[in-house]
C-alpha cells in the first residue's frame, strides 16, 4: 500500500518533530495520532509511510519496538530512552 501525504500534512509532521527536537529525536507511532484527530490510525500510517518513502522521515528500531524520526536527526545507534 503506497503512502499518501499532502504538503499540509507533511508540514504538520515536520513542525511537530522540529518543535520537539531539543528534547527527543524519535517518536512512537502513537505520538503522531493527536496531530490528526480526524484520521483513523491506519490513515495516519499512510501519511507517515509517504514521508518515509520521500526520505523525510526514517524508522528507528530496537528490534522489538519501532520509532519514527526526521532523517538524520539524533544519534543513529543510540538506545531507546537515550536519544
Amino acid at each position: 500500500m503506497a503512502g499518501v501525504c499532502t504538503d499540509e500534512e507533511r508540514e504538520k509532521v515536520v513542525d511537530f518533530l522540529n518543535g520537539k527536537s531539543s528534547v527527543k529525536s524519535k517518536f512512537y507511532f502513537q505520538d503522531f495520532l493527536p496531530l490528526f484527530p480526524d484520521k483513523k490510525p491506519r490513515e495516519v500510517k499512510k501519511v507517515l509511510s509517504a514521508l518515509i518513502d520521500g526520505g523525510v522521515l526514517e524508522y528507528w528500531s530496537s528490534g522489538s519496538t519501532t520509532m519514527y524520526g526526521l532523517k538524520g536527526a539524533g544519534k543513529q545507534s543510540a538506545a531507546e530512552g537515550e536519544s
Binding site: 518515509i52 518513502d53 526514517e58 524508522y59 528507528w60 528500531s61 530496537s62 528490534g63 519501532t66 524520526g69 543513529q76 545507534s77 543510540a78 538506545a79 531507546e80
Partner: peptide, 20 residues
C-alpha cells in the same frame, strides 16, 4: 552490544535488526 538503529532496506521498517 548497542541496542537498535536505523538500518533497514528501503521502505521497510522491519526485517533488519541493527546491532553495533
Amino acid at each position: 552490544w548497542k541496542h537498535g538503529g536505523i538500518v533497514g532496506v528501503f521502505g521497510y521498517g522491519g526485517g533488519v535488526i541493527g546491532r553495533y
